[in-house]
Design a protein around this nucleic acid. Structure first.
Lengths: 193, 193
DNA sequence: GGAGTTTTGAAACGATTATTCTAGAACGGA
DNA sequence: TCCGTTCTAGAATAATCGTTTCAAAACTCC
């Protein structure tokens, strides 16, 4: 073996992740990443292969530490619609307001122009979509949501709504209006029509 | 007077607009813009003040030529919910598939990290939101949509849905699923509950 | 047909980009 | 303790970035 790494990998990935969330892949320079991670460029290339490699690692980190975390916190099956509502409403209360965005949403937009999406974009969307679908099916069986609701369609709708809210929050759109909309939307899913 | 301009301003703005839609402001270099517009860098700086100025002009162009055009084509008041459905469904049939995006959505995401949004981002969202609100109010009066529907909330929901669909399309998400979702969503607005 | 003014195109600007190189420091195993 | 390996820091790389400069070209107006 050789010399052990001096840095805390988790802190490095978190720092890089925040920079990428704020400014996007193209908006962050390697020197910015030195600042954000505490690592020098040489170490970044040595440990992650380069800017792309660090970005990839940061996205994977995001999917586990942010996305999956948020899912587990707010929408375990037992949390029901109340949890789902919180899951959406917390988007409007993010610390730093609009500054930090969703790395999945932002990357989908940034890289969607050419045809080489980072694999973790599709991966993150898939994680989210799968959980939504599973929850909706379970809640339909348990009577938590309206019986005439189609889980597949509702999952797509919630996925789109989620991405849309993230865009609007980032654009500085009126948060009270978004809040009212979310509440109305989720409440309606529970009503029998 | 001096030497007249040789270029067709409309073609220049359209070219710049397409480049920015595809790759974003940061993803397009001035040399790319020379290719996209046919102008040389000198002329770009002379006529638009620089890359920023051309981007601003391209966004204004987008709001008039693409956004307002789409609105007038699909959702005049007389078109009703049928028009609204087409308005959404055409997002899934865009030529070039996912390559061209919405300049408003993409710019909101790209510039939302720092606090200096291009003014035309908010402007474009406002245009769209205002039209939606006006139509929903009219359609509610005429009985085209359900009487228990709140125009303000529904407008916000449609705005978010629209942005979300644009993100998902750009991410290469399953289009048939999105299509089903849109149809179900619009149809539901017409049903009396 | 100059005079004055604006556009054009090409070259050149310094700054910044991602990446590589290099020398030395810090460890594990023998 | 010394060897081999790995990591770190900083300088150096070539390329590209947005922008400026400048001389020639193309027009209007007097």
């Amino acid at each position: 073996m050789g010399r052990p790494r001096e840095f805390d990998e988790d802190a490095v990935l978190t720092g890089a992740m925040e920079a990428f969330r704020r400014f996007g892949f193209g908006g962050v320079s390697v020197r910015d990443l030195e600042q954000a991670t505490g690592l020098k460029a040489g170490s970044i290339y040595n440990s992650y292969g380069g800017k792309d490699g660090l970005f990839d690692a940061a996205m994977a980190h995001y999917n586990v530490v942010v996305l999956r975390q948020r899912i587990e916190t707010h929408i375990p099956e037992a949390a029901g619609l109340k949890g789902l509502r919180q899951f959406f409403l917390t988007l409007l209360l993010e610390p730093g307001g609009t500054s930090l965005g969703c790395l999945i949403t932002n990357s989908a937009v940034e890289f969607g122009g050419d045809r080489t999406l980072p694999s973790h974009v599709t991966g993150g969307l898939r994680i989210f979509s799968d959980v939504l679908l599973a929850r909706l099916r379970a809640w339909k069986r348990s009577g938590e949501i309206a019986s005439d609701l189609t889980p597949e369609i509702a999952a797509t709708r919630l996925l789109a709504m989620y991405q849309g809210i993230l865009v609007l929050v980032r654009a500085g759109w009126d948060k009270p209006a978004l809040k009212k909309m979310v509440q109305h939307e989720i409440d309606q899913m529970g009503e029998t029509r």
